[in-house]
Write a protein that binds this DNA or RNA. Structure first.
Lengths: 288, 288
DNA sequence: TGACACCGTTTAGCATAATTAAACGCTGAG
DNA sequence: CTCAGCGTTTAATTATGCTAAACGGTGTCA
């Protein structure tokens, strides 16, 4: 018995990312009834609920979140390939970025690059897992981390420390019972298995590392931030969440930060960057 | 304008893997007319041909092959997650393998393990890119390569050297004009960007490495073998292709092999393997 | 407190897309 | 030359997706 409902699953992915059926319906040029139907039918065929129904809307269930992690990744791999094959534009410079980084940092600054280099055709490629660059036709990617990678060569773009963050309720727990208690009780949100970030943070903070019982892997930074706001747990978020900090949706839970972490320009090791890549790197480093 | 035809794309993936519309139709419990329709419509919306029509069937076009690489990966990520969420069987031991390895090596030997350990629930998880183990719920994976990986810990299961292979036409070229000439003229088929395999083979063979003009990345070993048989180029295939060698579909083009390559049992670094994992590893090492 | 706005759900009917059966065209095998 | 195999086409049928409109629940605000 094969699964045959990939269109419905794609609709789910959009609803889950947007967080609302009505808003997703608008995005898709559909009525909310249609979207509601798709989700319901999908839940029936899958055999489990993807969303919890709240008075004021819907929220991802535990399984729904796990599903989103995979569908986002899967569909983005497929979509990026379609795009690439359709505009078979081998002269374009393709930059792999997370949507998180693109919307919060890169996009606002990009016009100046396009002005300075009108000859370079730039394609931003949203990706979740910034791996397998060549196979996805990525010339350069921008990746957050410590900079110690083996599959790519990298240069630091700018430092962007990360620290534990939670919502206001979590913040109250920290004030009340202390950070260590909160870290022990709450779910720790990871960005991926590879990331040693949490372990490094624990050692930087001088807190003994205890293998956490409750762990949730959420690769997409946007989804992770939203999960923290929704009270799912504590995540190491980087400094690009200023907006949420100021608006009080997110709280910094500790002064200890992973100072050596930041955004890096990376390209597949073994390849020599083209002049276009160098232009972009230079420009990025200047404005950073 | 969004792409909205993921079901058709899934049908394409199956047709491409099987290599025939009629056979795929049977697999899907559909008529060949239906499948033909789907493919044609998909090609129209995409704007390019996925298959070349031959008198005796269909063959993937260049773009079709590129598409297959992505759809296979994308759908397998999604499907594996669905399976996992449906049989939320946290006690099962999940082993990530390529379908290539599973069918050619593991499956035939597996009954003896199941007999010896009736208490262990085993789940074989077909994967293309054997990365991101924890995120995909993989306890252990079996990966081919040199064994020098940073994201996983590994122990060698058995050595499985690889050497350049081509079809009979390619073999004739080698006999006629020499291997170096063939390597320079033909497309080199890679398994992924990370793989330094070809470079290492060149140095092992004492042939000077020239950055090849024509390169094709085909992550799935099954598809890669088929591509070689179809005359797409030369690939480094491992010794599990005995069958194709004997039947004359595949030819070994050089005596030089990557002797240090083989299949390894791998698990996410930083995690401690469970006793079930150790049982499986022990059994695997004994029968290897 | 009560009218209202906001969401998601439901219903029934309609529009679109998927699927079939059967005939067709092509090519290579015998 | 005939036949078998494979993909394509056509027209009719079936399944699915979608809409409009009404509905039920909940929080908001006068």
């Amino acid at each position: 018995m094969q699964f045959r409902h990939y269109n419905q699953l794609k609709v789910f992915t959009i609803v889950a990312k947007i967080g609302s059926i009505s808003a997703a319906a608008e995005e898709l040029n559909l009525t909310k009834g249609a979207v509601s139907h798709q989700i319901k039918q999908l839940e029936t065929t899958l055999g489990f609920k993807l969303f919890e129904r709240l008075p004021r809307g819907v929220a991802l269930s535990q399984k729904g979140l796990a599903m989103l992690n995979s569908t986002e990744e899967g569909y983005s791999i497929i979509e990026s390939r379609i795009q690439r094959l359709q505009n078979d534009d081998s002269r374009a410079l393709t930059v792999g970025v997370s949507t998180y980084f693109a919307s919060r940092w890169l996009s606002p600054r990009l016009t100046s690059f396009l002005d300075q280099h009108p000859d370079i055709r730039l394609r931003l490629q949203p990706m979740i897992e910034l791996t397998n660059l060549a196979n996805n036709g990525i010339d350069v990617a921008i990746r957050w981390g410590s900079g110690h990678w083996h599959d790519v060569e990298s240069i630091l773009l700018f430092a962007c420390p990360a620290w534990p963050s939670g919502n206001s309720k979590m913040s109250a727990v920290v004030v009340d019972k202390g950070l260590e208690h909160a870290l022990k009780e709450a779910t720790l949100l990871h960005d991926s298995e590879h990331s040693a970030a949490w372990r490094e943070w624990f050692s930087a903070a001088g807190v003994t590392w205890h293998d956490p019982e409750k762990t949730l892997i959420i690769p997409d930074p946007n989804v992770r931030v939203q999960a923290v706001i929704d009270g799912q747990g504590i995540a190491l978020n980087d400094s690009l969440v200023e907006g949420e900090l100021e608006s009080g949706k997110l709280h910094r839970l500790s002064k200890t930060a992973l100072d050596s972490y930041g955004y890096h320009i990376v390209w597949a090791s073994g390849t020599t960057p083209s002049t276009d890549v160098l232009s972009l790197s230079n420009w990025l480093q200047n404005i950073a």
